[in-house]
């Protein structure tokens, strides 16, 4: 007689959150991981750099236009003899903060407008999309310059000015996703289950619409940093707060004598925005289920 072993119950596949798959997908993308590492370094430098380095970025510490490396000043001094490295470290804080705050603001406005337009359709959508188009066709730089010159060049005003001109992309993406998802049966099923519009929008549709919005938000931090740099370069910034764009702008007249005073903070902007873009692209691939199947 053959001895039949008791059948082993098949092992249940452990619940794998979609998040785990996304993380794995992201880690396979080397460029994105490199971007993430650079970004983390920049953020760490912004948080701890100024106190570790310990040089006041507003203090005149040595003769103006000391080239990098000489007299113990790693990146040299600017036209007022201020330490450039200290300036870049302190500027990182301002640039990153403005970038993130403006991105959060534009995501908030964009999601609200896009979700309401895409979910309710009809005349609500018509009105909201015409408003969105109005903001889209405004010359963004001019519009934010107007806001800054009207309300004064302080960091909150600059953040609001950047946020106000950059939410339209988020609104359009959110609306498109909502229009697609609201037709799916699980939304109808949730309605049949007694979910109200508020719950349908925020608990059912929005979580499923988030991936492309997250990507857009990540990329928006980069554009907001560039935008802030642009405004600062034009002098539309708080002259008492050092930021990357402000360093470039204030040293601009001396670009021929001491090009490093402009190049180095420019390089900081370039590296940071590039890192953010790489992370954003990596997120895009990792969050896109159609690419995941490959």
């Amino acid at each position: 007689m053959t001895d039949f072993a008791t059948p082993v119950p098949p092992e249940i596949e452990q619940p794998r959150a979609p998040l785990a798959e996304t993380t794995e997908m992201f880690l396979h993308n080397h460029a994105a991981v490199a971007g993430l590492i650079v970004l983390v370094l920049v953020v760490l430098a912004a948080i701890f750099g100024p106190s570790l380095y310990g040089v006041d970025p507003y203090e005149m510490v040595w003769a103006p236009f000391t080239p990098p490396g000489s007299e113990g000043y790693l990146l040299g001094t600017d036209y007022l003899g201020r330490d450039l490295l200290a300036g870049i470290l302190a500027g990182a804080r301002v640039s990153l903060t403005i970038g993130m705050a403006a991105a959060i603001m534009s995501v908030f406005i964009g999601i609200t407008i896009g979700a309401v337009a895409g979910f309710f359709r009809g005349w609500v959508e018509e009105v909201l999309m015409r408003v969105t188009e109005f903001f889209q066709v405004l010359p963004t730089l001019l519009f934010s310059m107007v806001i800054v010159s009207l309300f004064g060049a302080s960091l909150p005003v600059i953040t609001v000015a950047i946020g106000l001109v950059s939410w339209t992309a988020v609104a359009r993406i959110t609306r498109a996703e909502f229009m697609r998802i609201r037709e799916l049966e699980y939304v109808m099923a949730a309605r049949a289950s007694g979910a109200g519009n508020f719950k349908l929008i925020f608990r059912v549709v929005l979580p499923n619409a988030l991936p492309p919005i997250i990507v857009q938000a990540a990329l928006m931090v980069g554009t907001a940093i560039l935008f802030e740099a642009g405004l600062s370069f034009l002098g539309l910034t708080d002259p008492n707060v050092v930021s990357w764009g402000q360093i470039i702008g204030s040293n601009r007249p001396y670009i021929l004598d001491a090009n490093y005073t402009v190049t180095l903070p420019g390089l900081a902007i370039f590296v940071t925005v590039l890192a953010i873009s790489l992370v954003g692209d990596g997120l895009n691939d990792a969050l896109n289920p159609r690419l995941r199947a490959r």
Binding site: P18, Y186, M188, A190, A192, S193, G194, P207, N208
Partner: peptide, 21 residues
């Protein structure tokens, strides 16, 4: 919404009728 508890719906497509998240 309260009356919905008395009548429920079973949908055709078992793939799109469940919230993937």
């Amino acid at each position: 919404r309260r009356a919905r508890r008395k009548f429920q719906f079973i949908f055709q497509d078992p793939y799109s009728s469940l919230n993937p998240r």
